[in-house]
Amino acid sequence: MSAFIHTVYPVASGDYTRAGEASADIKRKLKQLGVASMVLRRVAVASYEVELNLVIHSMGGELILEVDEKGISLTSQDVGPGIPDISMAMKEGYSTANEEARSLGFGAGMGLPNMKRNADGFEIDSELGKGTRISMRFNLV
């Protein structure tokens, strides 16, 4: 199926100043497409969470938005360090975020479970030393 939107957003590690800009652009694009506000909000929340995760935890990566007639795909791919225990990371309240992230109001260990809750499809794969890939799908029909 051919995507009619395919945008790649590079996200830098530790760049808290720009964190959220990709998600704001994603929300703007989807709003222009006429995506219903309930779906739009779910995508925006999941996108912001995953973008913040890239900034807080990764060594850098990218966020990829793809839209086709059936739905919206949001993929986060980073270059490390990888998650040692995914089942722990998926638990609400479990966090390895640093002080800087916490001082900004993040790192409460809600990110991954919140992404899963908001998406219709959620997959996470991680390899230590290689990186983490999170794929989320949001149905439009």
Partner: peptide, 10 residues
């Protein structure tokens, strides 16, 4: 700024 960005997402 994240307070505003968070509010915007929601």
């Amino acid at each position: 700024p994240h307070v505003i960005r968070t509010a915007d997402m929601l």
